[in-house]
């Protein structure tokens, strides 16, 4: 009864004079939105840094066919990311990262279907779609682990690099990349690869953990007792955001 009185008294005031939600969403969802906004700033900063460093390095001028790795210019991404598991020595530019993109988009779709099932209080369907989402996330992380491993260990030929080793300048054949040396191009290219895809991968990992916690709660019936599945919506927002960030990483790191 007391809650009814609050609604009546506030209805006289404006939208922002209290007693109602001006944004027509719950506190938890609103705060998730603002957290995602702040996270979007973080990822924007990383991707803009990529743009700044890329433009402060010379671009490759020749034809794509004649391209070879060099410390002198920024590499063409599709020449770097052209390996696919089990197809050793086959040049398949961007195929593997394309598969990863489709996995993440599909897991986003299954998340929407879980949210939709939650609206209908259909616990069995929420369980099914949450499980597919978690599997998609794990598959994506597995792909990323392979890609990192390949990037770190490098190609069979490697590149000839002149560097400072134990205080002396030496010219060696270097394979793969780390934070200070990189066979594919200028060292910041590898550093940015590790930071941007690593930060995104950390988000996917925490998304999988959060999805699993919510999945567990669904299975034990927490949200049936609560009477609504809003937690699935909140974790869904986070998961879609992770997919959204990948859409931008895919374009700015791999395509352009």
């Amino acid at each position: 009864m007391s809650s009814t009185a609050t609604v009546v008294s506030s209805s006289k005031g404006g939208l922002w004079s209290g007693g109602r939600s001006p944004f027509k969403v719950s506190y938890g969802k609103l705060m998730m939105w603002f957290f995602l906004l702040s996270d979007a700033f973080t990822f924007s900063a990383l991707l803009v840094t990529y743009g700044l460093i890329r433009y402060s390095n010379p671009a490759y001028e020749g034809s794509p066919e004649a391209f070879s790795f060099s410390q002198e210019y920024w590499p063409i991404p599709e020449k770097v990311f052209e390996a696919v598991p089990f197809l050793h020595g086959v040049s398949a530019p961007l195929v593997f990262v394309g598969i990863m993109t489709f996995i993440l988009i599909l897991s986003s779709v299954t998340m929407v279907l879980a949210v939709e099932a939650g609206h209908r209080m259909d616990r069995k369907a929420v369980e099914k779609w949450m499980l597919w989402t978690i599997l998609g996330g794990i598959a994506f992380l597995g792909c990323q682990a392979w890609e990192w491993s390949h990037f770190i260990h490098g190609t069979q030929e490697g590149s000839i690099i002149t560097g400072l080793f134990n205080g002396e300048w030496e010219t060696i054949t270097f394979f793969g990349a780390n934070l200070s040396m990189n066979q594919y191009g200028p060292p910041p290219f590898a550093a940015l690869f590790f930071f941007i895809t690593g930060f995104h991968g950390t988000h996917v990992l925490s998304g999988v953990v959060l999805n699993f916690i919510i999945f567990y709660n669904v299975v034990v019936g927490t949200y049936d007792k609560r009477g609504h599945y809003e937690m699935v919506e909140k974790v869904g927002l986070y998961w879609h955001f992770v997919d959204l960030v990948w859409v931008f990483v895919f374009t700015f790191f791999y395509l352009i």
Binding site: W33, L37, F41, T49, G51, Y55, P58
Partner: peptide
Amino acid sequence: LIWSIIGPMLFVVWLIAVLIYEGGAIL
């Protein structure tokens, strides 16, 4: 709510423009 989320992203557009220009200047 839509504008509360989309509006602040306009700052990023400015950041992109200014830092890409800066990158060219460093080169």
